[in-house]
Simulated scan of single mutants.
Amino acid sequence: MKKSFAILIALLIFATSFSQNKFGNPEVDPVQIQKTYTDWSVYQSKKIMLSRDFTALDAASKEISKEAFLDQLANGNFIPIRLKSEESVYVYKLFKILPKTDTSIKATINQIGFDAYKNYKMEGTAFPKFSFKDLDGNLVTNESMKGKIIVIKCWYIHCTPCIREFPQVNKLVSEYKDRKDIVFMSLAEDSAEQLKTFLARKPLSYSVIPDMKEYMNTALQLNSFPTHFIINKEGVISKVLPNFESLEVALVKASKL
């Protein structure tokens, strides 16, 4: 009887261990990566893309919804780590932030989590009504854009990360130049005069809409730049993205639908 009981306990321990490790082990040491803000910042900027589709695990290795995962990042005391998997498979797990960890790490994670959560909640909703006139005098509205996939970049002249993306997003426009059903449009805070002077030195292949600060603040409630939107052919927001890397991946998927 004792032997049978021991075997049962061993099987339960094995089953628990298997359920926790079936997604793989962390690709970095969750303790070591918290040693310095710089180490963590470099890791998260290259490896953690919260706007993409991923399998979410809580601190106990239990699978949870993406919404719950982002909520815990925004309001909890966790650090996200990717688990080892195939290149195209993304599994992120929450690990506790240690007591002696630099407080800047937690503060930054909470902010990143908040932004990602807000963006995620916008997905699946209708893009706010608009009637824009670009720098060339072309009028674009919700009605005129029906039946097209719209890629929108929100930015302003003095946003360094926004400008750093220009060569990449320009190349993206070139790659999709034969897709007449995909439109690239940018909303900029700055005036038409400022933009024309700036873009003469730093060309952007998107159509550019000036004086969009109020619209981005009120209709879109943005507090982080750049922000990219992909709007489907029905005028619904399919993705809200914080950088070019995420945009490139999401647009490949959206363009095939």
Rank of each mutant, 00 (worst) to 15 (best):
S144Q: 10
L139T: 15
S246V: 02
N243H: 07
R164N: 11
D178G: 13
T218C: 05
D136Q: 13
D211T: 12
W155C: 02
I209H: 04
S238A: 10
A192W: 05
L195N: 04
V240Y: 00
A219I: 04
I182A: 11
N170T: 08
L204I: 06
K148A: 06
S186F: 02
M212V: 03
Q194N: 15
R179K: 15
Y206Q: 03
T197Q: 14
V249T: 08
F127E: 09
N170F: 02
V151N: 03
E248D: 13
E165T: 03
P128H: 10
D211W: 04
G235S: 10
I163Y: 01
T227F: 04
E234S: 15
S207I: 07
S191E: 13
C159H: 02
K233I: 13
P242T: 00
N243P: 00
V183Y: 15
E248I: 00
E248V: 01
R201N: 14
L241M: 09
R201K: 15
K196I: 10
K153G: 00
F229A: 05
S144I: 12
T160F: 10
M216R: 05
T227R: 00
Q221F: 07
L204E: 09
Y206F: 14
N170I: 05
T218L: 09
C162F: 04
S205E: 12
I152D: 01
P226T: 06
S191H: 09
I182G: 10
A188I: 09
I150Q: 12
F127Q: 10
C154T: 13
V249S: 02
L187V: 08
Y176W: 07
E214S: 13
L172S: 01
Y176S: 08
Y215V: 08
T218A: 10
H228T: 05
F244K: 00
S246R: 01
H158E: 14
G147M: 14
W155D: 00
F229P: 05
K133Y: 07
K171S: 10
H158N: 15
S131P: 08
V208D: 00
S174Y: 07
T197C: 01
